[in-house]
Design a binder for these strands. Structure first.
Lengths: 160, 160
DNA sequence: ATCGTTGCAAAGTATTTGCATCGGT
DNA sequence: ACCGATGCAAATACTTTGCAACGAT
């Protein structure tokens, strides 16, 4: 289990290395560390958190390099940027099923971000085209909500 | 026409004045100037632009007061905050038909923001409730798009 | 050896805040 | 006269950038 995950990360790292080469970018230790750190995250994270994670792998990683690497990661289908309009941006690794449109649901009580599919968004894109003569490039649906359970019990069942 | 508009602004200003009183806020010249400036705008504007507009009415208005007044305006159904995830926030006066949910369509070619109705968003809210046990408070749908006409002719027909 | 990349610290951008003064009530 | 509101400038929060040294190719 541990081993298979390590293998899969290694394989992914090689993919990233060759992606970098293709784009004419150099495969530095810092970039690979940032990639590995990002790839290991299951949930949403901020640039600052990614810096912490990456430094555990390679403590020479700087904040500037994280910020300079993020556009490469989001441009190579490793990460997705999630902007919930809160000052800082969040990032998340691409997962299976992420091909379809998703909406972000932000819980105002526990500050967590959930994502659920919103397939009608792609249909909506064609409405935009015909109504405005604009061709959609990306769409973002964000819902702010209160946690029903939190309101009643004072704790969030999804909190862990 | 000019006159009727002036009358309507004056009437609105009185409404705002009594709204301030109700909330226990003082009706200062600066707040009234900011209100009048906001109320006169037909399109989206930023805090900085609002400062400029307000200063034409009362040049003692400061940036800090604009930022301190904006929450009052958005809380009193005068303005709506429109966050397109671009660093700065936009604001727009409420209009007829704004009762229903709207989506923001941002043109990547001419940087303008269009709004079109997206009634399915309120239906979507109930989906969120049943799937996640969260009660939606607000929703935001943003579409980034390219202008078809701009791509072909190099100019945007909506540009004025 | 080249030249893209790095860390650092300074700069930037949008917004917020501390504080002495001002002014609506 | 009280105390909320104001302008100013400093502070904040996140991100970007200039520059000399570094290191992947």
């Amino acid at each position: 289990m541990e081993n298979s995950r390590r293998v899969s990360i290694t394989a992914a790292r090689e993919k990233f290395r060759s992606f970098l080469a293709l784009q004419g970018h150099r495969a530095t230790n810092q970039r690979l560390a940032i990639f590995a750190a990002a790839y290991a995250q299951a949930e949403h994270f901020t640039a600052e958190q990614l810096l912490d994670y990456a430094r555990k792998i390679d403590d020479s990683v700087s904040r500037a390099t994280v910020y300079r690497t993020l556009p490469i990661l989001t441009g190579s289908a490793v990460l997705r940027e999630v902007d919930i309009g809160s000052g800082e941006k969040f990032y998340r690794t691409y997962r299976e099923g992420d091909g379809t449109q998703v909406a972000q649901v932000v819980c105002l009580d526990c500050d967590r971000i959930f994502e659920i599919s919103a397939p009608f968004m792609s249909w909506y894109g064609s409405t935009v085209s015909s109504k405005l003569g604009l061709t959609p490039v990306s769409q973002r649906l964000q819902v702010s909500a209160h946690c029903d359970a939190f309101r009643k019990t004072g704790t969030c069942p999804r909190r862990n």
